[in-house]
Design a protein around this nucleic acid. Structure first.
Lengths: 226, 226
DNA sequence: CGTATTCTTGACCGTGCTCAAGTCCCGTGG
DNA sequence: CCACGGGACTTGAGCACGGTCAAGAATACG
């Protein structure tokens, strides 16, 4: 089977370090480089005038940063790494040159964007029609699924330590309520929080609780267009 | 300037009629045709097991239906037309043939998808961090902006009659609360509801209320990659 | 060892939900 | 032409989910 990311991975790039909290792309920036996360993790977010923050997505190793900025004139949201991270940077020049030379690369980017779109839409469902406990369970299951794909390790463990303030801003909740709800999930025996992440103790019960199905994370059907 | 949709518009297609309420694509369907709305309008939505519905997006003339199904194996959401509508249908065969023959078309699709992604992300911000009145104001301004672009008519009028139940399911609110909030917007002198749509009486004040900026609806910067 | 950050817990409050009744409008059939 | 019925909207009353404020515990860090 055709490997979707193959062409993207052939691009010229170099590894760059970012410190926890560093902003990689800020809202309003004109398109700069495109990155791929090698290690660490990041968030995409938007800030409202009065300081409210909405996290749009968590980015884990293998995910791309700044793809949209290639297509739109300016970035409509910011991206920052949450922990010390290593990113693979593709310079805009080499990136655009490669795009022109290799039409298949554009196809690749399209598929990557489609997956992002699926993820964004699932986030809409979470925020619009799920209760607090469902939102948190669903989010944890999504991150677990995406980490599994990127690492290849098939456990029921969310191996990144996500501050509750970030979960709150991602899920449209207050920090206090996130704390209470996570406690509730623990008392239900569904998860266990630890030093380095969260363990999912009862995957089936957890999925049932929030109606989680991972098909929206499915790899694009490359063969259709390739 | 390069017209983004030019190539898409050159595809072979035929006009098809749908009656109000007809489902064009159902969740779980394997990719069928791709459509473009000629007249009328539609919604993209997901249903949860217990009947809750989340509307992901409103689709107006010029918007595409089923693009994502080309890339993913099955549709992860449904689309139905809300009023009697006319859609331009591209058969999957001719569509895929055209895709293979014309690499630029894929580029076009990518940009279209990027705009969808922008819209989905703005929907996330609405649901996650805006109050009921902000959500409604913001949604109305977005639809107004998109209708302006597709029709070319530059007025402050939302010329489609959106049932409040749909606004509720789009904005994560109850029908009752949508009713109350629209009443409030009218009492504030910001909008006026009518037979065939909603008039925006005070565009500036309305934008200020919800922090609406239309830059996320900006056309993709095609020249960058073309 | 002191300070800052994150998490927890309690008490109270408010936005928005639910339930319910009533109005308005329009299409349909008697 | 009017009676009926259904759908969309409105309005009121009470309630609940989740927010806010505040204080304290636990943890990390310089």
């Amino acid at each position: 089977m055709f490997k979707p990311d193959k062409d993207i991975h052939d691009l010229p790039r170099r590894s760059v370090s970012f410190k926890a909290g560093d902003v990689v792309i800020a809202e309003g920036d004109i398109a700069e480089s495109v990155y791929m996360i090698e290690s660490g993790w990041a968030i995409e977010y938007r800030l409202l005038d009065d300081g409210r923050r909405q996290i749009l997505n968590f980015l884990v190793p293998g995910d791309h940063i700044g793809l949209q900025a290639i297509s739109m004139k300016t970035a409509s949201y910011s991206v920052c790494v949450v922990v010390d991270s290593r990113l693979q940077k593709m310079t805009p020049d080499s990136f655009l040159r490669a795009l022109k030379k290799n039409p298949k690369l554009v196809e690749c980017l399209w598929h990557t964007s489609m997956k992002d779109l699926s993820i964004a839409r699932e986030q809409v469902v979470r925020l619009g029609r799920m209760s607090a406990i469902e939102r948190i369970a669903h989010m944890l299951l999504e991150i677990n699924a995406r980490l599994k794909k990127s690492s290849g390790v098939n456990d029921n463990y969310v191996g990144i330590k996500i501050p509750q303030a970030l979960l709150a801003d991602a899920l449209g909740l207050s920090v206090v309520h996130v704390s209470r709800t996570i406690t509730k999930l623990q008392k239900l025996g569904l998860i266990r929080t630890g030093e380095k992440g969260i363990e999912i103790l009862n995957y089936n019960e957890m999925s049932r609780l929030c109606g989680f199905e991972d098909n929206y994370l499915m790899d694009p059907d490359i063969q259709r267009v390739a």
